[in-house]
Design a protein around this nucleic acid. Structure first.
Lengths: 338, 338
DNA sequence: CCTGGCACTCTGCGAGGGGGAGTGCCAAAC
DNA sequence: GTTTGGCACTCCCCCTCGCAGAGTGCCAGG
């Protein structure tokens, strides 16, 4: 078991390393943090911490840097989430409040988060399956062509084109539209499949094919694969990775463009509460030198999607976690208002 | 006036430099290109080209690299757009054909373009003002709250929330919806303002405020500032800028995140035909070491938006221009079909 | 106008040599 | 048993030096 002072030493190492980006030695530690012991004692503690895998040295006779395991312990036991200052909170509220539609909310959120944390921000659009239906619209574009428009309570809008097997009359279309809406409006998308399944049967044989096509398209839209979207911002902050970053930045940029990868990553995080994934804890290879801080957000109690930041493992965890949590809270408020 | 051979030398320099990313010397030139003259002759030509500002040397006694002016001449006079191979064309068609909605079309286009050119791709969403109205929908969310949904012939969907000064009845709403649609469906968005201006007057005094709010929101949506959107992809290709890029990549990433900057850039390009902006020709400072190749695309004869790529000035212009042109052509086809 | 020759310049690279920071270990002190 | 000061050692970083190579500019001759 690690002694109290050793934990203190680990915390000091993490804090210093995050600040300077340079391996930290025993002497510097005793000077900057008022540990009331000598460098030699700290060296012993460091040897023990290294033995246990919390820190490592890049080369013999260099200072120590934290390992993923070291950061993990720091985040779990040693760090307090740093709350934002009142001015910062006000700024967030003002900035997010000016949004005109969902795209704008998400866009502003991503910029805000990137700005606050000086890292790459990722914001997931509210999930369809966890939202409720606000309205379903059917438009006739051509005799045998429809457009389906889905609107959720979180403000998300999806549209799909439908090719009808047989032309459908205006009256039938109005009927279908009305019945579709009366069935699903206010319901959660998760429940929609069960509610519309038997809709085709109640129509004339002539129209049944078209109604089936509409229902099928509606259900397709809810398939996990296509329904999850996200927005990314602050990639310029990747240049802060350090001067050695040409080799590091590449796989990260590639991973960020693979939205599927990020969605999976976010999906693995706990639904409520903040999740921090450090270095190799991230399944994706390209992100093995980054940490991902994520949290769910929603208009009510329940999370409808997640947001977070991606940064170097050597990030300011307390500050980042504070910013992520605060932004999630305010986005939830904004969504609830619309 | 530049002689024929000097132009040939310039072309050779550009081609070699684009290939090797290293300053090219007189000896290497005579070896790789069968110019039927000696290195010494080439040196004289190079001196003349440098005198005129088409090439420069990084240091005394180094080879030459093309200047922005040199690339400009190359693009204008010396390069032919390289058409894509039939297999490439088929691949494009297959890939774009699988799109399910406009977001998907734009997303696929951006990935495709990035992949083909190995550079950063930028695709603008079809402009609202140049599209025609397919449908306007008004939904009642709450007694004094409406949602306005705009659908264009290019598949774009915009939504806005409207707070009504006074509650509006279902019948009036239906009336308004019908009259709005009969006025604007099939019209170009550019003409919409004139068509809806006098709509409030034809309603009861009670509803006039709400109708005005709807009309105002509709017009707001068409304002240049908010209506232009774009998608970016292939930022990982920025790492191809070269090993010296840490300082170069940063401002480029920042510029790319400023969509306003890019939109302005695209806006300055000619509406039809391909535009190439080289290095300092780009007004934005951060893009002074990049070239932007852009072209309009549209569902019919007329361009509804633009797309292009951003890459280092030392790019393969013929190949890039070929890819950009081909992709724009196919996207136009896809849009016309929907 | 082109060509070969020649002297000159500048970069890039590798070897060599401090200087410095940091460690590990040990013996003594608390 | 823990802490401390001392000391020898290791390794990186940076600077310099020297050299090879590539490329140029210029000149005189074809």
């Amino acid at each position: 078991m690690l002694g109290e002072r050793r934990l203190e030493v680990l915390r000091a190492i993490v804090q210093d390393y995050v600040g300077t980006h340079e391996p930290v030695g025993s002497k510097a530690l005793t000077e900057r943090h008022h540990l009331r012991v000598s460098p030699a004692t700290v060296r012993n503690d460091m040897a023990a911490l290294e033995e246990d895998g919390y820190i490592a040295q890049p080369h013999t006779s260099a200072g120590r840097i934290p390992t993923d395991k070291g950061y993990r312990l720091f985040v779990d036991k040693l760090a307090d989430v740093k709350p934002l200052s009142p001015p910062e909170r006000r700024a967030i509220q003002n900035f997010l409040g000016g949004a005109v539609d969902l795209d704008d909310v998400v866009g502003r959120t991503v910029r805000l988060l990137a700005q606050l944390t000086q890292q790459v921000a990722v914001v997931q659009y509210p999930s369809l399956t966890r939202s409720t239906v606000r309205h379903v619209e059917l438009l006739s574009l051509a005799p045998a062509r429809l457009m389906l428009v889905l609107i959720t309570d979180t403000g998300r809008v999806e549209q799909r084109l439908i090719d009808c097997p047989t032309p459908i009359g205006e009256a039938t279309l109005a009927d279908l539209r009305a019945r579709l809406n009366s069935k699903v409006v206010g319901e959660r998308f998760n429940d929609v499949p069960g509610l519309v399944q038997d809709l085709p049967e109640s129509f004339d044989a002539d129209d049944r094919g078209t109604v089936s096509a509409v229902v099928a398209t509606l259900l397709e839209t809810l398939v996990e694969e296509t329904e999850e979207r996200l927005m990314i911002g602050g990639t310029a902050n990747l240049t802060r990775f350090g001067p050695d970053f040409p080799l590091t930045i590449r796989p990260v940029l590639e991973a960020l463009e693979e939205h599927v990868v990020l969605l999976k990553l976010l999906g693995e995080a706990t639904d409520s509460g903040m999740t921090v994934r450090i270095g190799h804890e991230n399944a994706h290879e390209g992100l093995s030198s980054t940490s991902v801080v994520s949290v769910g957000y929603g208009s009510g109690d329940e999370a409808v999607a997640k947001l977070g930041v991606v940064g170097p493992t050597r990030m300011d965890y307390p500050g980042t976690m504070g910013a992520v949590r605060a932004v999630a809270r305010y986005v939830g408020q904004i969504l609830a208002e619309s």
